[in-house]
Design a protein around this nucleic acid. Structure first.
Lengths: 222, 222
DNA sequence: GTACGGGACAAACCTAGGTATAGGGCCTCC
DNA sequence: GGAGGCCCTATACCTAGGTTTGTCCCGTAC
Protein backbone atom coordinates (compact mmCIF):
# COMPACT_ATOMS: atom_id res chain seq x y z
CA UNK A 1 0.00 0.00 0.00
CA UNK A 2 2.88 2.28 0.76
CA UNK A 3 5.69 0.66 -1.17
CA UNK A 4 7.20 2.71 -3.90
CA UNK A 5 10.08 0.39 -4.78
CA UNK A 6 12.70 2.87 -3.70
CA UNK A 7 16.03 1.16 -4.33
CA UNK A 8 17.75 3.14 -1.56
CA UNK A 9 16.15 1.92 1.69
CA UNK A 10 17.51 4.94 3.53
CA UNK A 11 16.88 7.89 1.32
CA UNK A 12 13.43 9.03 2.35
CA UNK A 13 14.86 12.54 2.45
CA UNK A 14 12.17 14.39 4.29
CA UNK A 15 9.29 12.93 2.35
CA UNK A 16 6.33 13.47 4.70
CA UNK A 17 4.00 10.70 5.84
CA UNK A 18 0.32 10.78 6.65
CA UNK A 19 -0.88 8.24 9.18
CA UNK A 20 -4.50 7.26 8.97
CA UNK A 21 -6.37 5.55 11.77
CA UNK A 22 -9.89 4.51 10.94
CA UNK A 23 -11.70 1.24 11.53
CA UNK A 24 -13.59 1.47 8.28
CA UNK A 25 -11.46 -0.14 5.56
CA UNK A 26 -13.26 1.66 2.76
CA UNK A 27 -12.50 5.03 4.29
CA UNK A 28 -8.88 4.04 4.81
CA UNK A 29 -8.69 3.13 1.16
CA UNK A 30 -10.36 6.31 0.00
CA UNK A 31 -8.14 8.55 2.10
CA UNK A 32 -5.03 6.64 1.10
CA UNK A 33 -5.86 7.11 -2.54
CA UNK A 34 -6.59 10.77 -2.02
CA UNK A 35 -3.32 11.49 -0.25
CA UNK A 36 -1.25 9.38 -2.62
CA UNK A 37 -2.81 11.21 -5.53
CA UNK A 38 -1.08 14.38 -4.34
CA UNK A 39 2.23 12.60 -3.80
CA UNK A 40 2.10 11.96 -0.06
CA UNK A 41 3.31 8.80 1.61
CA UNK A 42 0.59 7.07 3.62
CA UNK A 43 0.37 4.47 6.34
CA UNK A 44 -3.06 3.30 7.41
CA UNK A 45 -4.17 1.48 10.56
CA UNK A 46 -7.41 0.03 11.78
CA UNK A 47 -6.98 0.88 15.46
CA UNK A 48 -5.10 3.08 17.89
CA UNK A 49 -3.16 0.07 19.12
CA UNK A 50 -1.78 -0.68 15.70
CA UNK A 51 -0.60 2.89 15.38
CA UNK A 52 1.11 2.78 18.75
CA UNK A 53 2.95 -0.39 17.73
CA UNK A 54 4.41 1.35 14.70
CA UNK A 55 7.60 3.28 15.39
CA UNK A 56 7.30 7.04 15.62
CA UNK A 57 8.28 8.57 12.29
CA UNK A 58 11.47 10.58 11.77
CA UNK A 59 10.06 12.73 9.02
CA UNK A 60 7.40 15.46 9.06
CA UNK A 61 4.08 13.72 9.44
CA UNK A 62 0.54 14.01 10.71
CA UNK A 63 -2.29 11.85 11.94
CA UNK A 64 -5.76 11.62 10.51
CA UNK A 65 -7.95 10.06 13.18
CA UNK A 66 -11.53 9.02 13.33
CA UNK A 67 -12.95 10.11 16.66
CA UNK A 68 -14.76 6.83 17.11
CA UNK A 69 -12.29 3.97 17.10
CA UNK A 70 -12.45 0.44 18.43
CA UNK A 71 -10.71 0.33 21.83
CA UNK A 72 -9.00 3.65 22.41
CA UNK A 73 -11.00 6.57 21.02
CA UNK A 74 -9.44 9.26 18.91
CA UNK A 75 -9.47 11.73 21.78
CA UNK A 76 -7.90 9.23 24.15
CA UNK A 77 -5.26 8.46 21.58
CA UNK A 78 -4.54 12.17 21.38
CA UNK A 79 -3.92 12.47 25.09
CA UNK A 80 -1.97 9.19 25.19
CA UNK A 81 0.34 10.50 22.51
CA UNK A 82 0.75 13.79 24.35
CA UNK A 83 1.65 11.92 27.52
CA UNK A 84 4.18 9.86 25.56
CA UNK A 85 5.65 13.15 24.39
CA UNK A 86 4.71 12.52 20.78
CA UNK A 87 3.47 15.73 19.26
CA UNK A 88 2.56 14.78 15.74
CA UNK A 89 -0.23 17.12 14.60
CA UNK A 90 -3.66 15.55 14.50
CA UNK A 91 -6.63 16.02 12.22
CA UNK A 92 -9.88 14.55 13.42
CA UNK A 93 -12.67 13.22 11.31
CA UNK A 94 -16.05 12.46 12.76
CA UNK A 95 -19.45 11.24 11.72
CA UNK A 96 -21.25 12.03 14.93
CA UNK A 97 -19.13 14.30 17.08
CA UNK A 98 -20.38 16.93 19.43
CA UNK A 99 -19.17 20.35 20.52
CA UNK A 100 -17.47 19.35 23.78
CA UNK A 101 -15.43 16.76 21.88
CA UNK A 102 -14.45 19.37 19.35
CA UNK A 103 -13.43 21.84 22.02
CA UNK A 104 -11.36 19.25 23.82
CA UNK A 105 -9.61 18.20 20.62
CA UNK A 106 -8.86 21.76 19.56
CA UNK A 107 -7.70 22.82 23.00
CA UNK A 108 -5.31 19.91 22.96
CA UNK A 109 -3.77 21.25 19.80
CA UNK A 110 -5.59 19.49 16.98
CA UNK A 111 -5.10 21.10 13.58
CA UNK A 112 -8.65 20.55 12.44
CA UNK A 113 -11.83 18.71 13.20
CA UNK A 114 -13.77 17.74 10.11
CA UNK A 115 -17.25 16.30 9.83
CA UNK A 116 -18.27 13.57 7.43
CA UNK A 117 -18.78 13.75 4.59
CA UNK A 118 -15.36 15.37 4.30
CA UNK A 119 -14.61 17.51 1.29
CA UNK A 120 -11.35 16.41 -0.36
CA UNK A 121 -9.98 19.91 -0.48
CA UNK A 122 -10.67 20.53 3.19
CA UNK A 123 -8.71 17.54 4.37
CA UNK A 124 -5.89 18.12 1.92
CA UNK A 125 -5.56 21.68 3.22
CA UNK A 126 -5.57 20.45 6.77
CA UNK A 127 -2.94 17.82 6.05
CA UNK A 128 -0.78 20.38 4.32
CA UNK A 129 -1.00 22.72 7.30
CA UNK A 130 -0.34 19.88 9.73
CA UNK A 131 2.76 18.72 7.93
CA UNK A 132 4.05 22.24 7.70
CA UNK A 133 3.59 22.69 11.42
CA UNK A 134 5.34 19.41 12.11
CA UNK A 135 8.22 20.37 9.89
CA UNK A 136 8.72 23.58 11.86
CA UNK A 137 8.36 21.81 15.17
CA UNK A 138 10.98 19.26 14.19
CA UNK A 139 13.36 21.90 13.01
CA UNK A 140 13.05 23.86 16.24
CA UNK A 141 13.44 20.65 18.18
CA UNK A 142 16.63 19.72 16.41
CA UNK A 143 18.16 23.10 17.09
CA UNK A 144 17.20 23.13 20.74
CA UNK A 145 18.34 19.60 21.41
CA UNK A 146 21.71 20.26 19.81
CA UNK A 147 22.15 23.25 22.07
CA UNK A 148 20.92 21.32 25.07
CA UNK A 149 23.33 18.46 24.53
CA UNK A 150 26.19 20.92 24.32
CA UNK A 151 25.00 22.57 27.49
CA UNK A 152 25.03 19.20 29.19
CA UNK A 153 28.67 18.81 28.27
CA UNK A 154 29.50 21.81 30.47
CA UNK A 155 30.89 21.30 33.96
CA UNK A 156 28.88 22.72 36.82
CA UNK A 157 31.20 25.70 37.24
CA UNK A 158 30.99 26.43 33.55
CA UNK A 159 27.22 26.48 33.84
CA UNK A 160 27.41 28.95 36.71
CA UNK A 161 29.58 31.23 34.65
CA UNK A 162 27.39 30.83 31.58
CA UNK A 163 24.28 31.96 33.34
CA UNK A 164 25.92 35.02 34.86
CA UNK A 165 27.71 35.99 31.67
CA UNK A 166 24.60 35.74 29.53
CA UNK A 167 22.69 37.77 32.05
CA UNK A 168 25.01 40.62 31.17
CA UNK A 169 27.52 40.74 34.00
CA UNK A 170 31.16 41.63 33.40
CA UNK A 171 33.84 39.04 34.11
CA UNK A 172 34.87 40.74 37.32
CA UNK A 173 31.27 40.85 38.56
CA UNK A 174 30.85 37.17 37.76
CA UNK A 175 34.07 36.47 39.62
CA UNK A 176 32.88 38.41 42.65
CA UNK A 177 29.53 36.61 42.74
CA UNK A 178 31.13 33.20 42.51
CA UNK A 179 34.07 34.03 44.75
CA UNK A 180 36.59 33.46 41.96
CA UNK A 181 39.47 35.34 40.42
CA UNK A 182 38.67 37.21 37.24
CA UNK A 183 41.21 35.20 35.29
CA UNK A 184 39.42 32.00 36.23
CA UNK A 185 36.17 33.35 34.84
CA UNK A 186 37.92 34.30 31.63
CA UNK A 187 39.25 30.80 31.23
CA UNK A 188 35.87 29.18 31.87
CA UNK A 189 34.29 31.61 29.52
CA UNK A 190 36.61 30.55 26.74
CA UNK A 191 35.87 26.91 27.43
CA UNK A 192 32.16 27.65 27.33
CA UNK A 193 32.40 29.34 23.96
CA UNK A 194 34.29 26.37 22.57
CA UNK A 195 32.03 23.69 24.04
CA UNK A 196 28.84 25.46 23.03
CA UNK A 197 30.12 26.20 19.56
CA UNK A 198 29.29 29.88 19.95
CA UNK A 199 31.12 32.24 17.64
CA UNK A 200 30.18 35.34 19.62
CA UNK A 201 28.58 36.46 22.83
CA UNK A 202 25.42 37.28 20.90
CA UNK A 203 25.29 33.65 19.84
CA UNK A 204 25.73 32.48 23.38
CA UNK A 205 22.95 34.75 24.62
CA UNK A 206 20.57 33.38 22.02
CA UNK A 207 21.47 29.83 22.94
CA UNK A 208 20.83 30.47 26.60
CA UNK A 209 17.50 32.03 25.67
CA UNK A 210 16.61 28.89 23.77
CA UNK A 211 17.47 26.88 26.87
CA UNK A 212 15.55 29.23 29.14
CA UNK A 213 18.57 30.09 31.28
CA UNK A 214 18.96 33.19 33.44
CA UNK A 215 16.31 34.74 31.24
CA UNK A 216 16.18 38.25 32.61
CA UNK A 217 13.95 39.45 29.83
CA UNK A 218 14.49 42.84 28.17
CA UNK A 219 13.98 45.47 30.82
CA UNK A 220 11.98 48.65 30.80
CA UNK A 221 13.62 51.10 33.18
CA UNK A 222 16.79 53.22 33.23
CA UNK B 1 -24.55 47.76 37.27
CA UNK B 2 -20.83 48.18 37.31
CA UNK B 3 -20.43 51.20 39.52
CA UNK B 4 -18.52 50.64 42.69
CA UNK B 5 -18.38 54.24 43.87
CA UNK B 6 -14.61 54.40 43.67
CA UNK B 7 -13.73 57.91 44.85
CA UNK B 8 -10.55 57.90 42.77
CA UNK B 9 -11.73 57.83 39.13
CA UNK B 10 -8.30 56.65 38.03
CA UNK B 11 -7.24 53.95 40.42
CA UNK B 12 -8.60 50.74 38.93
CA UNK B 13 -5.25 49.13 39.58
CA UNK B 14 -5.36 46.07 37.39
CA UNK B 15 -8.80 44.93 38.44
CA UNK B 16 -9.91 42.72 35.53
CA UNK B 17 -13.15 43.21 33.60
CA UNK B 18 -15.42 40.68 31.96
CA UNK B 19 -17.41 41.92 28.97
CA UNK B 20 -20.60 40.10 28.24
CA UNK B 21 -22.40 40.31 24.93
CA UNK B 22 -25.73 38.55 24.80
CA UNK B 23 -29.09 39.70 23.48
CA UNK B 24 -30.99 37.93 26.22
CA UNK B 25 -31.28 40.27 29.19
CA UNK B 26 -31.91 37.48 31.65
CA UNK B 27 -28.71 35.73 30.68
CA UNK B 28 -26.78 38.99 30.92
CA UNK B 29 -28.15 39.43 34.41
CA UNK B 30 -27.36 35.88 35.45
CA UNK B 31 -23.80 36.01 34.14
CA UNK B 32 -23.24 39.43 35.66
CA UNK B 33 -24.33 38.15 39.04
CA UNK B 34 -22.18 35.09 38.71
CA UNK B 35 -19.03 37.00 37.84
CA UNK B 36 -19.63 39.70 40.41
CA UNK B 37 -20.12 37.04 43.05
CA UNK B 38 -16.48 36.07 42.60
CA UNK B 39 -15.32 39.67 42.68
CA UNK B 40 -14.96 40.40 38.98
CA UNK B 41 -15.93 43.68 37.36
CA UNK B 42 -18.50 43.24 34.60
CA UNK B 43 -19.82 45.22 31.66
CA UNK B 44 -22.72 43.79 29.71
CA UNK B 45 -23.97 44.64 26.22
CA UNK B 46 -26.92 43.57 24.12
CA UNK B 47 -25.16 43.61 20.76
CA UNK B 48 -21.79 43.56 19.05
CA UNK B 49 -22.23 47.18 18.04
CA UNK B 50 -22.62 48.34 21.60
CA UNK B 51 -19.43 46.57 22.54
CA UNK B 52 -17.54 48.15 19.66
CA UNK B 53 -18.69 51.59 20.78
CA UNK B 54 -17.22 51.05 24.21
CA UNK B 55 -13.55 51.94 24.50
CA UNK B 56 -11.11 49.06 24.56
CA UNK B 57 -10.17 48.32 28.15
CA UNK B 58 -6.75 49.02 29.61
CA UNK B 59 -6.86 46.24 32.14
CA UNK B 60 -6.79 42.46 31.74
CA UNK B 61 -10.17 41.44 30.42
CA UNK B 62 -12.08 38.92 28.38
CA UNK B 63 -15.22 38.63 26.33
CA UNK B 64 -18.11 36.27 26.87
CA UNK B 65 -20.05 36.12 23.62
CA UNK B 66 -23.19 34.43 22.53
CA UNK B 67 -22.63 32.99 19.07
CA UNK B 68 -26.03 34.15 17.91
CA UNK B 69 -26.30 37.90 18.22
CA UNK B 70 -28.52 40.46 16.55
CA UNK B 71 -26.61 42.07 13.68
CA UNK B 72 -23.02 40.90 13.82
CA UNK B 73 -22.72 37.29 14.97
CA UNK B 74 -20.28 36.25 17.65
CA UNK B 75 -17.92 34.71 15.10
CA UNK B 76 -18.02 37.81 12.93
CA UNK B 77 -17.34 39.94 15.96
CA UNK B 78 -14.34 37.76 16.70
CA UNK B 79 -12.84 38.34 13.28
CA UNK B 80 -13.73 42.04 13.32
CA UNK B 81 -11.87 42.44 16.58
CA UNK B 82 -8.89 40.54 15.23
CA UNK B 83 -8.82 42.82 12.18
CA UNK B 84 -8.98 45.84 14.48
CA UNK B 85 -5.98 44.38 16.29
CA UNK B 86 -7.90 43.83 19.48
CA UNK B 87 -6.89 40.54 20.98
CA UNK B 88 -9.01 40.25 24.08
CA UNK B 89 -9.55 36.53 24.74
CA UNK B 90 -13.02 35.27 23.88
CA UNK B 91 -15.27 32.66 25.43
CA UNK B 92 -18.23 31.60 23.36
CA UNK B 93 -21.55 30.42 24.62
CA UNK B 94 -24.04 28.79 22.36
CA UNK B 95 -27.45 27.21 22.46
CA UNK B 96 -27.39 25.67 19.02
CA UNK B 97 -23.90 25.74 17.63
CA UNK B 98 -22.38 23.22 15.32
CA UNK B 99 -18.94 21.72 14.87
CA UNK B 100 -17.70 23.93 12.02
CA UNK B 101 -18.53 27.01 14.09
CA UNK B 102 -16.65 25.54 17.02
CA UNK B 103 -13.64 24.75 14.92
CA UNK B 104 -13.58 28.21 13.41
CA UNK B 105 -13.84 29.86 16.82
CA UNK B 106 -11.13 27.72 18.38
CA UNK B 107 -8.79 28.08 15.40
CA UNK B 108 -9.16 31.82 15.73
CA UNK B 109 -7.93 31.62 19.26
CA UNK B 110 -11.05 31.36 21.41
CA UNK B 111 -10.39 30.23 24.95
CA UNK B 112 -13.47 28.05 25.18
CA UNK B 113 -16.73 27.26 23.51
CA UNK B 114 -19.47 26.30 25.96
CA UNK B 115 -22.90 24.91 25.28
CA UNK B 116 -26.04 25.93 27.11
CA UNK B 117 -26.92 25.18 29.75
CA UNK B 118 -23.54 26.35 30.98
CA UNK B 119 -22.25 25.04 34.28
CA UNK B 120 -21.18 27.91 36.52
CA UNK B 121 -17.85 26.34 37.31
CA UNK B 122 -17.03 25.78 33.64
CA UNK B 123 -17.47 29.39 32.68
CA UNK B 124 -15.71 30.67 35.77
CA UNK B 125 -12.74 28.47 34.93
CA UNK B 126 -12.75 29.68 31.36
CA UNK B 127 -12.93 33.33 32.44
CA UNK B 128 -10.09 32.81 34.86
CA UNK B 129 -7.93 31.26 32.15
CA UNK B 130 -8.87 33.98 29.69
CA UNK B 131 -7.97 36.80 32.05
CA UNK B 132 -4.72 35.14 32.92
CA UNK B 133 -3.85 34.86 29.25
CA UNK B 134 -4.76 38.49 28.69
CA UNK B 135 -2.64 39.58 31.60
CA UNK B 136 0.40 37.83 30.13
CA UNK B 137 -0.31 39.18 26.67
CA UNK B 138 -0.51 42.72 28.00
CA UNK B 139 2.66 42.37 29.95
CA UNK B 140 4.56 41.08 26.95
CA UNK B 141 3.05 43.84 24.87
CA UNK B 142 4.15 46.54 27.24
CA UNK B 143 7.71 45.27 27.25
CA UNK B 144 7.89 44.93 23.50
CA UNK B 145 6.37 48.30 22.79
CA UNK B 146 8.78 50.03 25.15
CA UNK B 147 11.65 48.41 23.32
CA UNK B 148 10.12 49.21 19.97
CA UNK B 149 9.68 52.87 20.75
CA UNK B 150 13.31 53.08 21.79
CA UNK B 151 14.31 51.35 18.60
CA UNK B 152 12.36 53.94 16.67
CA UNK B 153 14.40 56.67 18.30
CA UNK B 154 17.52 55.29 16.60
CA UNK B 155 18.86 56.92 13.46
CA UNK B 156 19.02 54.72 10.37
CA UNK B 157 22.77 54.22 10.68
CA UNK B 158 22.38 53.26 14.29
CA UNK B 159 19.86 50.63 13.23
CA UNK B 160 22.30 49.24 10.68
CA UNK B 161 24.95 48.94 13.34
CA UNK B 162 22.52 47.45 15.85
CA UNK B 163 21.52 44.64 13.56
CA UNK B 164 25.08 43.70 12.70
CA UNK B 165 26.33 43.98 16.25
CA UNK B 166 23.56 41.82 17.67
CA UNK B 167 24.17 39.26 14.97
CA UNK B 168 27.56 38.74 16.56
CA UNK B 169 29.98 40.66 14.34
CA UNK B 170 32.98 42.49 15.76
CA UNK B 171 33.19 46.24 15.42
CA UNK B 172 35.72 46.02 12.64
CA UNK B 173 33.59 43.57 10.70
CA UNK B 174 30.59 45.84 11.07
CA UNK B 175 32.74 48.74 9.88
CA UNK B 176 33.87 46.78 6.84
CA UNK B 177 30.32 45.76 5.91
CA UNK B 178 29.02 49.29 6.18
CA UNK B 179 32.10 50.93 4.69
CA UNK B 180 32.85 52.84 7.88
CA UNK B 181 35.83 53.36 10.12
CA UNK B 182 35.90 51.19 13.21
CA UNK B 183 35.84 54.21 15.49
CA UNK B 184 32.59 55.34 13.92
CA UNK B 185 31.00 52.00 14.70
CA UNK B 186 32.18 52.25 18.29
CA UNK B 187 30.60 55.65 18.66
CA UNK B 188 27.29 54.53 17.17
CA UNK B 189 27.39 51.48 19.36
CA UNK B 190 27.69 53.61 22.46
CA UNK B 191 24.80 55.78 21.32
CA UNK B 192 22.71 52.67 20.70
CA UNK B 193 23.35 51.33 24.18
CA UNK B 194 22.31 54.64 25.68
CA UNK B 195 19.20 55.13 23.54
CA UNK B 196 18.02 51.56 24.01
CA UNK B 197 18.68 51.62 27.73
CA UNK B 198 20.75 48.45 27.47
CA UNK B 199 23.15 47.83 30.30
CA UNK B 200 25.08 45.14 28.44
CA UNK B 201 25.42 43.49 25.07
CA UNK B 202 23.40 40.56 26.38
CA UNK B 203 20.57 42.97 27.07
CA UNK B 204 20.81 44.42 23.61
CA UNK B 205 20.72 40.99 22.01
CA UNK B 206 17.58 40.09 23.93
CA UNK B 207 15.93 43.32 22.92
CA UNK B 208 16.69 42.74 19.28
CA UNK B 209 15.29 39.23 19.62
CA UNK B 210 12.10 40.71 21.00
CA UNK B 211 11.97 43.00 17.99
CA UNK B 212 12.73 40.19 15.57
CA UNK B 213 15.86 41.86 14.23
CA UNK B 214 18.73 40.12 12.47
CA UNK B 215 17.47 36.98 14.14
CA UNK B 216 20.16 34.53 13.15
CA UNK B 217 18.86 31.87 15.47
CA UNK B 218 21.24 29.71 17.51
CA UNK B 219 23.30 27.74 15.05
CA UNK B 220 24.17 24.08 14.88
CA UNK B 221 27.47 23.71 13.07
CA UNK B 222 31.13 24.57 13.83
C1' DG C 1 50.25 4.65 42.59
C1' DT C 2 49.51 7.13 38.72
C1' DA C 3 46.83 8.94 35.25
C1' DC C 4 42.89 11.86 34.40
C1' DG C 5 39.53 15.57 34.87
C1' DG C 6 37.74 19.30 37.32
C1' DG C 7 38.66 23.36 39.77
C1' DA C 8 41.44 27.31 40.73
C1' DC C 9 44.96 30.72 39.97
C1' DA C 10 49.11 33.75 38.07
C1' DA C 11 52.06 36.31 34.70
C1' DA C 12 52.46 37.87 30.28
C1' DC C 13 50.59 39.35 26.34
C1' DC C 14 47.38 40.70 22.79
C1' DT C 15 42.86 42.11 20.87
C1' DA C 16 38.35 44.18 21.27
C1' DG C 17 35.35 47.52 23.28
C1' DG C 18 34.45 52.12 24.68
C1' DT C 19 34.95 57.23 25.95
C1' DA C 20 36.36 62.04 25.44
C1' DT C 21 37.72 65.72 22.63
C1' DA C 22 37.86 67.73 18.38
C1' DG C 23 36.75 68.48 13.86
C1' DG C 24 34.39 68.58 8.95
C1' DG C 25 30.36 68.02 5.64
C1' DC C 26 25.49 68.15 4.77
C1' DC C 27 20.66 69.21 5.18
C1' DT C 28 16.54 71.25 7.31
C1' DC C 29 13.86 74.25 9.98
C1' DC C 30 13.01 78.65 11.82
C1' DG D 1 22.13 82.65 8.30
C1' DG D 2 22.71 80.21 12.24
C1' DA D 3 21.17 76.24 15.31
C1' DG D 4 20.79 71.58 15.49
C1' DG D 5 20.64 66.95 13.78
C1' DC D 6 22.82 63.20 11.33
C1' DC D 7 26.86 61.40 9.38
C1' DC D 8 31.71 60.59 9.42
C1' DT D 9 36.51 60.49 11.16
C1' DA D 10 41.04 61.05 14.01
C1' DT D 11 43.99 60.98 18.20
C1' DA D 12 44.58 59.55 22.66
C1' DC D 13 43.61 56.80 26.35
C1' DC D 14 41.56 53.37 29.28
C1' DT D 15 38.99 49.13 30.37
C1' DA D 16 37.26 44.56 29.28
C1' DG D 17 37.85 40.25 27.00
C1' DG D 18 40.62 36.38 25.86
C1' DT D 19 44.79 33.02 25.10
C1' DT D 20 48.96 30.68 26.44
C1' DT D 21 51.93 28.55 29.59
C1' DG D 22 52.64 26.79 33.80
C1' DT D 23 51.45 25.47 38.57
C1' DC D 24 48.85 23.46 42.40
C1' DC D 25 45.08 20.82 44.91
C1' DC D 26 41.78 17.18 44.99
C1' DG D 27 39.19 13.08 44.15
C1' DT D 28 38.48 8.90 41.66
C1' DA D 29 38.97 5.34 38.40
C1' DC D 30 42.07 1.66 36.88
Amino acid sequence: MTERAEPAPQQDGDQPIVFIVDDDASIRRALTNLFESVGLKVEAFGSALQLLHAKPPEVPSCLVLDIRLPGTSGLDLQSDLAKANIHTPIIFITGHGDIPMTVRAMKSGAIDFLTKPVRDQDILDAVQAAIERDRKRRELNRTVSTVRSRFESLSSRERDVLSLVTSGLMNKQVAAQLGLAEITVKIYRGQIMRKMGAKSLADLVRMSEALGIGANKPDAQT
